[in-house]
Write a protein that binds this DNA or RNA. Structure first.
Lengths: 121, 121
DNA sequence: GATTATCGATTACATGCGTAAATGATGTAG
DNA sequence: CTACATCATTTACGCATGTAATCGATAATC
């Protein structure tokens, strides 16, 4: 029951706004992916079978909504990456980006704020 | 030329120690994956074709070494995740784990140390 | 030197994925 | 009521992946 790359693009649209009809999803994807409506329909059906989205009939068509929550998906994906590459912890990932000087000013400022708010121990 | 999940398990072994013969790689994978030697050979060949590993003949067999560096792989994977889910920045990922209270003591201590070492601006 | 063991290389095969066309059902227009 | 349009459902198909077995070459053994 994992969500594929293409499927996740559809989920993104639904997390952003729902419920939506297939046609609206195609439109929302429009700039990001040049998919035929048929392609999006296929992805929606696969997501339905996986239980990741739900559909409610609305006249002749369906309106789709996410069942899988964005936060749960984000967490699963992130945890998977951390487990595979960083011993399951967050700090080593930050250290990696820091070592590569890939932390933006904004990142640094936000990180400072974040840890300042954390309980001392 | 992306590295698949199974292939990355082989890369992990080679990053850990190299050069290694196929048999040694199978042994090293032993506890993590119950793969037949033939399976590992297939993965090695695919990695060779992708240019991710190199092989040097050693008598009747080959010794394999990584060409793709672990750090580059880790970075590509991490950047991909950040781009897809966190607007390409590190701080929002940390915020996500912080909000879920998934930062360990060790993480927090390490993060404090990390940002303390960063230039103020 | 002929047979056997041991490598790597080639081939296999089911499943998932990306991408979509064809088909079928149902609502709408004339 | 019949033809057309519009949805969704089914089928398609090539490529990657996970997982191996088989084939072929070469080295070791008798």
């Amino acid at each position: 029951m994992s969500i594929s790359e293409a499927e996740s693009a559809v989920m993104q649209v639904l997390w952003n706004a729902h419920p939506l009809a297939a046609e609206e999803i195609v439109a929302a994807l429009g700039d990001a992916r040049q998919w035929q409506e048929a392609t999006v329909k296929t992805l929606l059906n696969r997501l339905l079978n996986k239980g990741a989205v739900a559909a409610v009939r609305d006249g002749r068509r369906y309106l789709y909504s996410p069942v899988l929550q964005r936060d749960a998906y984000v967490h699963a994906q992130s945890k998977d990456l951390l487990d595979r590459l960083f011993g399951g912890r967050v700090a080593p990932l930050v250290a990696h980006f820091s070592a590569r000087r890939k932390l933006s000013k904004k990142d640094v400022a936000e990180l400072r704020r974040l840890i300042a708010e954390l309980p001392d121990e």
